[in-house]
Nucleic acid binder design. Structure first.
Length: 412
RNA sequence: CGGAGUGUAGUUCAGAUGGCCAGAACGUACGCUUUGGGAGCGUAAGGUCGCCGGUUCAAGUCCGGCCACUCCGACCA
């Protein structure tokens, strides 16, 4: 990508009321812009990151045997009434009517929809278990949005729903999802704590949050550093912890980037005909679970964890580009030609490159932008570099002069 | 929804006691100069002063209502 053609520019100042570092940097770097409170545009750079996050999630979900599909965003309100969740969700449902006055809820989570599609089929125990998921925009009319992408009213979420014959079978999927989630976040450079939590309006008996420790997070939990037992402060009272154990636990704050829920029969018993035929010929309700990851929040969390005073330091796995190629002295025809040649070589080798081809911008400004945008590598071509390229990792201050062949050996 | 606060150019802000054509910096466009850590000079464009109403000879400024946004809390991913 040519920097001169990239839609979205870096700016020196962030809005004065931006408090979260992730919001400041994503704003200044030209990744996002606010529409109205809690609703954001993802600019080209931001969307590239979001897509990479989704790609990793998809790879891991598919490897775990889950199948991607897609449900409508407008949910018939009658489905939400069937489970009485029109009244019990913590967020306000947003409602719309069509031309026939039929009422819909803008989906904030999709348990009812997925049960509804499943019950359209005549399933038997032989079809179970399965785990189906989607990426889609969720709408939650929260009382208050905060912290840029950390808490919003409209966001991309991966939500999946598992259907099982019984608890024993379900627990295998639950355990698999727990491992899958840990792997997903590790691949994005996030270290997560698995925290036992309250189910809230989702229903069911137990659930676990995947929390990244951070002072800007809203999740408070207690953790025992020796046993890695972690529980949300909300459920401490329910958990009958001995005073002795309690003393060993420390309280921490973090950002909830994902969660896994046991739903059991919560939905399949409330919704008519959410049944499968078991081996004994009897119709029985599905034993369910659901699993969510907020994409935008995950992106913001990565920035919260991986940045310095100059800007973002993206992990390779989700960086918008691997290399920021900076051409200096581009008014010199020889240098310009060399820079273009290197850009071409990088592209030919599938090394995603943002080429800063601006001829009328000072070196300092280009370096500043590169640090702000935070690609893992910065490559410089100038009068000084001759037929070589200067390479620097974003996270380090060390520079190396490499031949083009050596440059092409950098890995994704 | 309770508490606090903000709303003037794309952004950050200044505009005391009401008073002529509403300002600066950054950014943007053009010209010249400059080119390894956000350079310099010049010119220009860019504003229904959040909206509605009121007071007044006169309102960005005073009064009332509304709206939007931010922060804290409550609540929740």
């Amino acid at each position: 990508m040519l920097y001169s053609k990239l839609f979205g520019k870096t700016v020196k100042t962030a809005p004065k009321d931006a408090v979260a570092d992730s919001y400041k940097l994503l704003y200044q770097g030209g990744f996002i812009r606010e529409s109205t409170a809690g609703r954001y545009f993802f600019l080209p750079l931001g969307q590239l990151v979001q897509q990479k996050i989704m790609k990793i999630i998809k790879e891991e979900m598919d490897a775990a045997g889950a199948q991607e599909m897609l449900s409508p965003v407008l949910h018939p309100l009658s489905l939400w009434q069937e489970t009485n969740r029109t009244k019990t969700t913590g967020f306000e449902l947003m409602r719309v009517k069509d031309r026939n006055e039929a009422e819909f809820a803008l989906g904030g989570t999709a348990e009812e929809m997925f049960v509804d599609v499943v019950r359209k089929f005549q399933l038997s125990y032989k079809d179970l278990p399965f785990n189906i998921y989607q990426f889609s925009t969720k709408f939650r009319d929260e009382l208050r949005a905060r912290g840029g992408l950390l808490r919003v009213r409209e966001f991309m979420m991966k939500d999946s729903y598992s259907f099982d014959t019984d608890e024993k079978s379900f627990k295998k999927i639950y355990e698999k999802m727990r491992e899958t989630y840990s792997r997903i976040f590790t691949r994005m450079g996030l270290e997560t704590v698995v925290v036992e939590s309250d189910n809230g309006y989702i229903g069911g008996e137990y659930c676990h949050e995947f929390v990244v420790e951070s002072p800007v997070g809203e999740s408070r939990f207690l953790v025992n550093p020796n046993t890695s037992l972690a529980i949300h402060t909300d459920i401490v009272d329910k958990k009958k912890i001995t005073p002795d154990e309690r003393r060993k636990m420390v309280e921490k704050k973090g950002i909830e980037v994902g969660n896994i829920f046991q739903l059991g029969y919560y939905y399949s018993e409330k919704m008519r005909d959410a049944l499968f035929t078991d081996v004994d010929g009897k119709r029985k309700p599905f034993y369910m679970g659901c699993y969510g990851i907020g994409i935008g929040r995950t992106m913001a969390t990565v920035v919260e964890v991986h940045h310095d005073k100059r800007g973002i330091v993206w992990p390779k796995s989700i960086a918008p580009y691997l290399v920021n190629l900076i051409g200096l002295d581009l008014t010199d025809a020889g240098v310009k030609k060399q820079a273009e040649k290197i850009y071409q070589k990088l592209s030919d080798n599938k090394l995603e490159t943002l080429y800063d081809d601006r001829a009328d911008v000072s070196a300092g400004e280009k370096f500043g932008d590169a640090d702000l945008i935070g690609t893992p590598y910065r490559a410089v071509v100038s009068k000084r570099t001759g037929d070589k390229v200067e390479l620097k990792k974003r996270a380090s201050s060390e520079t190396k002069l490499l031949s083009i062949e050596e440059l092409l050996r950098i890995s994704c």
